[in-house]
Measured scan of single mutants.
Amino acid sequence: SQVHIGNTTFTFDNPEKAQKYAEKYAKKKGLTVQKNGDVWTVE
């Protein structure tokens, strides 16, 4: 599972961890999370 934030990609061994990280980061920065398969993009 991966989380894309700008030009940075974070890889997680667990989809739940990836989703939590993406949502927490997005909330903190006032951004949105797009999910595509097991990839979350914060923008």
Rank of each mutant, 00 (worst) to 15 (best):
K17N: 11
E23I: 08
K20L: 13
S1E: 02
Y25T: 01
V42Q: 00
T8G: 05
L31I: 05
K17S: 14
W40Q: 00
A18N: 03
E43I: 15
T41C: 15
I5V: 08
F12P: 00
K20R: 13
N36A: 09
K27S: 08
H4M: 13
E16W: 12
V39G: 10
N14K: 07
H4Q: 13
N14A: 09
I5P: 01
G37M: 03
K24P: 00
V33G: 01
E16L: 11
A22I: 09
N36M: 13
G30N: 05
K20T: 09
L31H: 05
H4L: 12
V33C: 01
G6V: 06
G37W: 03
P15N: 07
V39N: 11
E16N: 07
V42Y: 04
W40G: 00
Y25K: 02
V42G: 00
K35Q: 08
V3S: 02
V39K: 07
I5T: 03
K28V: 10
Y21C: 11
E16T: 08
N14W: 05
A22G: 01
V39I: 12
G30A: 04
G30L: 02
T9I: 15
K28E: 13
N7P: 06
E43K: 13
T11E: 07
V39H: 11
N36L: 12
V3L: 06
N36E: 10
K17Y: 10
K28Y: 11
T11C: 15
N14C: 13
H4T: 10
I5L: 05
V3T: 01
T41R: 08
V3H: 02
N7Y: 12
Q19T: 02
Q19H: 08
V39M: 11
L31W: 13
F10W: 10
F12R: 00
A22F: 06
W40K: 00
Y25M: 10
K27Y: 07
Q2T: 11
K35W: 09
Y21L: 06
E23N: 06
S1H: 14
Y21S: 00
T8K: 15
T9C: 15
T41V: 14
V42M: 05
K29Y: 15
P15D: 09
A22C: 06
G6A: 07
Q2D: 05
K29A: 09
K29R: 13
G6L: 08
T11W: 15
V33W: 07
T41N: 06
T32A: 08
Q19S: 06
E16D: 10
V33H: 00
T41P: 00
L31Q: 02
W40I: 03
Q19Y: 11
V42E: 00
W40N: 01
G6T: 05
E43Q: 12
S1V: 14
K35I: 05
G30P: 02
G30V: 00
A18T: 00
K35A: 04
Y25I: 11
Y21V: 06
T8F: 15
G6E: 08
Q2G: 05
K24F: 14
V39W: 06
D38I: 06
D13F: 09
Q2S: 09
K17W: 09
K27Q: 09
N14R: 06
N36Y: 11
V3F: 04
I5G: 00
L31D: 00
Q2R: 13
G30R: 05
N14Q: 07
T9K: 12
E16Q: 11
D13K: 10
Y25L: 12
Q2L: 12
N14S: 14
N7W: 13
F12L: 04
K17H: 12
N36C: 12
T41F: 13
H4W: 08
N36Q: 13
N7K: 12
T8W: 15
N36R: 12
Q19F: 07
T32M: 09
T9D: 03
H4S: 08
T9S: 07
N36V: 14
T8M: 15
A22R: 03
A18Q: 00
V39S: 12
H4C: 15
I5N: 03
V42F: 09
E16A: 12
N14D: 14
D13G: 08
V33E: 02
E23M: 09
A18D: 00
N14V: 07
E16Y: 12
L31M: 09
Y25E: 05
T32D: 04
L31A: 05
D38E: 10
F12H: 02
F12S: 03
Y21A: 06
T11Q: 10
G6P: 04
V33M: 08
T32E: 05
I5Y: 04
K35F: 11
Q19I: 06
F12A: 01
K29G: 04
I5K: 03
V39P: 01
F10C: 14
G6D: 06
D38S: 10
W40P: 00
G30Q: 04
K20I: 12
Y25S: 01
D38F: 13
Q2C: 15
P15H: 05
Y21N: 00
F12G: 02
F10K: 06
V33S: 02
T9H: 11
T32K: 11
T41D: 05
K35P: 00
Q19N: 05
H4P: 04
K17D: 15
H4K: 15
W40D: 00
P15R: 04
T41A: 04
A18H: 00
D13N: 10
E23Q: 09
L31T: 03
Q34T: 14
W40V: 00
V33N: 02
G30H: 05
K35H: 08
V3E: 02
I5M: 04
G6Q: 06
Y25G: 00
D38W: 09
E23G: 02
K29Q: 07
K28I: 12
Q19D: 02
K20V: 09
L31Y: 12
V42W: 05
K29F: 15
V42L: 07
Y21M: 08
V3A: 03
E16K: 12
Q2K: 13
D38K: 07
A26T: 02
G37K: 05
N14Y: 06
V39D: 09
W40C: 05
N7M: 10
T11S: 10
N7R: 12
V42T: 03
K17I: 12
K20Q: 13
T41G: 01
V33Q: 01
